[in-house]
Amino acid sequence: MTINIKRGEELVSYEIEEKNLTLLQVLTQIKTEVDSSLSFSSGCRSSVCGSCAMRVNGREVLACAYKPSEGDLIEPLRNVPVLRDLVVDMDKAYGFNKIAKAWGLPTSKSISVSPQDAKQNELQSDCILCGSCYSACPVYSVNSEFIGPFALTRSWKYVSDLRQSDISSTIAAVQTSGIYDCTLCGECVPVCPQGIAPKQDIVMLKNKSGVLGYMDPSFASSFGGGLTF
């Protein structure tokens, strides 16, 4: 079987045995037996650390959970700087978690949370920060400062948490280059290895923002002209 790996500007083909291995096992085999300079990131091998996200035939996958097929094209994630071969620099992308103020403010009182309440943000907290949704998001081609799908899902995780008494700073943080910049195209949804739907979470954040008196700026500007005398 032949697979093709994008390495910088070049596309390099590798002949591999068909042994029912995962893509990560295949890459490891190439590195240790054929070409030690092939660079990629990996960690847990069991889809919880988020290190080995990459694209296969244009779609984001975790290499540890994908079995390659004849002719596959393997590429690094998009929207992030490529450091080398399949290794990307996630620093800026990770930084959006901070810009979104996606965290909880510690509370001193112990709050009772029912199993049903806990379900509210259980899925959102399954996120492994692999960057698949970030890579699939088309907004970055027009706005490189977009807070983006995983950081907004993370914001919603805290905003929807019963234990949080004050969510105002998190909501305020996602108003600029945040929830209104999302086009709700849904490209982030099918690529999530954890089955999270960031698009849904962004809709929820928009609703919550509306309830708290924030206004969609595109909506506001369409009325803008008529209000000046």
Binding site: W103, G104, P106, T107, S108, S110, S112, V113, S114, P115, D117, A118, N121, E122, S125, K157, Y158, D161, R163, Q164
Partner: peptide
């Protein structure tokens, strides 16, 4: 719990 770790819960919360 206070910083938001989403622990699984019993029926009594």
């Amino acid at each position: 719990d206070s910083i938001g770790v989403p622990f699984s819960r019993n029926e009594d919360g």
